[in-house]
């Protein structure tokens, strides 16, 4: 009996990704986009985007990755104007840096100067997070779950999800924050001992995404908290999340 277990283990082979900071994703993956200088009808492009993520700023087009649902349709409809790269490292603590402007090859990272001091000293060896889904569509939830699986194995860094907010060092929010969930979210957040992190995962959490104007949401809670990390994606890729957390809490991973 024990022998069949060993055979199964052998057949499965090694599944884990050795270096999560250097792993690469297929080219088709939609990470940070680039906007070329090609002449197009800007208004048409702006109107085309389903989540109003594309805007015109001083005659230059920009994509707000906090609003972008990464549908990729703009790059198909306006080829050579917008090109998504497979750069998945795009988590940041600076909401403004999620703006990608025309003509730039953007690097998005956690900015050291914006990290609260206590974060680095307390959470740099072990970090326990409590996830709260507030209207999430189960995509980000599944990807956060995948962060701990045998492929990504986030646990190797001492980073894990925990059941009780009392045992947690921070809250990870998915979903656009529904009116029906906002109270539970607030209670969970307050139950986390200080200092505590607050992390928004996925386009829905960051901006409301495709639900932004829905009257079923209640997002004013966000005005009352300090947001430590924005993780763009729809859903996020595990590598985006893990690298973002590492950059936030550990100096040696910072770019």
């Amino acid at each position: 009996m024990f022998l069949d277990d060993l055979i199964i283990v052998k057949h499965q082979g090694k599944q884990f990704i050795k270096d999560l900071t250097k792993a690469s994703l297929p080219e088709i993956f939609r990470g940070i986009p680039q906007i070329s200088d090609k002449a197009i009808n800007a208004q048409e492009l702006i109107d085309f985007c389903p989540t109003a993520a594309i805007l015109l700023n001083k005659n230059k087009l920009a994509i707000d990755l906090g609003k972008c649902a990464f549908c990729g349709d703009c790059q198909m409809q306006f080829p050579n104007k917008i090109t998504f790269t497979n750069q998945y490292k795009m988590a940041t603590n600076n909401r403004d840096s999620l703006m990608v402007y025309q003509g730039e090859s953007k690097e998005i990272k956690v900015e050291a100067s914006l990290i609260r001091k206590e974060i680095q000293s307390i959470f740099n060896r072990s970090l326990k997070l409590r996830q709260v889904s507030a209207g999430g569509d189960n995509g980000n939830e599944l990807e956060l779950g995948a962060c701990g699986n045998v492929n990504f194995d986030m646990g190797r860094y001492g980073i894990e999800f925990t059941a009780s907010p009392r045992h947690a060092d921070g809250i990870v929010v998915t979903g656009p924050i529904t009116e029906n969930m906002v109270e539970a979210l607030q209670i969970a957040f307050e139950a986390v001992p200080e200092p505590r992190l607050f992390i928004l995962v996925g386009v829905d959490a960051i901006s409301g995404g495709i639900f932004a104007e829905s009257t079923a949401l209640k997002r004013d809670f966000l005005n009352k908290v300090h947001i430590d990390l924005y993780v763009p994606g729809n859903p996020i890729h595990p590598l985006t999340f893990i690298n973002g957390i590492l950059e936030l809490t550990r100096k040696k991973y910072r770019r």
Binding site: G135, G136, T178, S214
Partner: peptide, 13 residues
């Protein structure tokens, strides 16, 4: 009901 985002209404709007 906690996850209610009003999708059917948004479909029309």
């Amino acid at each position: 009901g906690w996850q209610h985002r009003g999708i059917e209404t948004l479909m029309l709007h």
